Every structure is written in C-alpha cells, then in structure tokens.
Simulated scan of single mutants.
Amino acid sequence: MTYCVGMRLERGLVFMSDTRTNAGVDNISTFRKMFTFENQGERCITILTAGNLATTQSVISILEERTKAPADRKPSIMEAPTMFQVAQLVGQTLREVIAANSEEGQRADAAFNATLIVGGQIAGSPPRLFLIYPEGNFIEAGEDTPYFQIGETKYGRPILVRAYEPDMSFEAAVKLLLVSFDSTIKANLSVGLPLDLQLYEEGSCARGLSRRIDADDPYFQAISSGWGTALKSAFDSLPDVEL
C-alpha cells in the first residue's frame, strides 16, 4: 500500500509520500514514489505514484525516456506548453501501460491499476495540481478540493479536513502532513517510513526543499509523540457521559 499527498497553498505546492511497498508481511521493500522533472526557471513537475509498482515504474521510465531521446517521437512532458497538457500526457501514458500489461476483462485491469498526483508550474502560468485515474482521465485541485490523497487515504484524511488552511505557511503544512502520515502509519502497517518531502515555491520553476525523513528524524519523533500526548490531553478534557 501507499500514502501520498499533494497540497495546494497560496504560497505554492507541498508533496509528501511514504516509501513502503509490500507483497505480504514478510516481503517489505522501500521504493521512491516521488519523481521530479525540472528545467530550472522554465518548469518544475512532480509526480506521486500509488498502485501496482510495475505499472508506476513503467510510467515513470517511459516519461523519462521521452524527455531524453523519444524514438517514437511522442511528446514529452518537458515540451508540453501547459500543465493541463502535462496531465493529459501522463494520463495517456498511464492508460497505455495498463492496457499493455493487462488481459481482457475488468479483473485483470484492476491488478495493474495505479493512481498518480501530478503538480507543478510552467513559466507564464500558475501552479496546478491534478489527480490522474487509471483510465487516464483526471481532475484538478481548486478552492473546494485543495489537496489530493492517493493510496491509504482514510486514516490521514480527518487531520487534513480539520486543520488545512490555504494561507498556511510551508512550515505549518509540513507539520500537518507529518501528523496525517503519523496517524496513517500507526493505523496501517502497509504504510511506512522513510517519507519523502518536497516543497515548491510559486514562481520559482525550480524544486524547493527536498528531503527524506527517516524513523529516527528528531522532528518527526517530536511530532509523533507530541500529537499522541495532545490527543490524550484533549480526550481527557472532554466531559464524561452521564450514566
């Protein structure tokens, strides 16, 4: 399983993903699920992946190959003039990979499914954030839906719903996402550290802070223990039921 979040703020974009993949409790591996395509000053595009690992790795590999020497002459996401067209290209690639690897029938298709978050900015246009479905179609983040989650979403979603604000700082957004990820990790063993974090400042057309957060990271440990203590304190402060 996976947990990834792409968040739109007034200041820019924030991305976070876990790195755990597993095919059973005795077969757990670490794989990167965050990928960035960048031409500094011109565009910066980040992709988060969830779903069948072979499918997502194939999609990223094809996108990377097309940015270098596209033998099939298909367009590259580094050439698309808008983020909307980037989302179209990524969606088409995802649909093609799923179709190429699955047999006929809904059951076979589902085994190769994947979902992606694509966000970034191309010079001359604002930052945009998209959620791309296995069928290749997609939706865009807006004021009503300012962030997207993929993978194991249910445990971390209540945190985001209650605390997200579009004008929050990068520092507050990172803290919010770490609480969301900590809640998910504690509830589901298929999501795990290390976590990948990346910030994107609007107008920069270059990746901002990019780091990996390990289990022994002091700040993550402080957030995890502090959130547990705060929850217990809040629970104790609530009135008891009269029986």
Rank of each mutant, 00 (worst) to 15 (best):
L209R: 08
D216L: 03
Y219K: 08
L231V: 14
D236W: 11
L231P: 12
D236L: 12
E202N: 10
L209A: 03
S233F: 14
Q198Y: 01
Q221F: 04
Y200C: 04
S237W: 12
W227H: 15
G208Y: 07
Y200A: 05
Y219W: 05
I213Y: 00
Y200P: 05
Y219T: 06
Y200T: 00
G226V: 10
D236H: 12
G208P: 01
G203T: 00
S233R: 15
R207T: 08
R207C: 09
G226D: 11
S204E: 06
D214K: 05
P218R: 02
R212L: 03
G208D: 04
D236K: 12
S224L: 10
R207N: 09
L199A: 07
L238T: 11
A215Q: 08
S224I: 10
P218H: 02
G226H: 10
G226W: 10
L231K: 13
R211V: 09
C205H: 03
P239T: 04
F235T: 13
G228C: 12
E202G: 10
Q221V: 09
S210I: 01
A230Y: 15
Y219D: 04
D236T: 13
L209K: 07
F235R: 14
G226L: 10
F235P: 11
A222V: 08
S237P: 12
Y219N: 07
E201I: 02
P218L: 02
S225F: 10
D216A: 04
Y200K: 05
A234S: 15
S237Q: 14
Y219P: 07
G208I: 05
L199I: 09
G203Q: 00
P218Y: 06
R207W: 01
E201Y: 08
D217Y: 03
T229D: 14
L231C: 15
E202P: 04
G208M: 02
L231G: 13
E201D: 09
L238K: 12
G228F: 11
Q198A: 00
I223W: 06
E202F: 06
P218S: 01
A230P: 13
S210G: 05
I223Y: 06
R212Q: 02
S204T: 01
Q221A: 10
P239K: 08
Q221K: 08
L199S: 00
A215V: 01
E201S: 08
Y219S: 08
C205A: 07
A206C: 05
Y219A: 07
C205R: 02
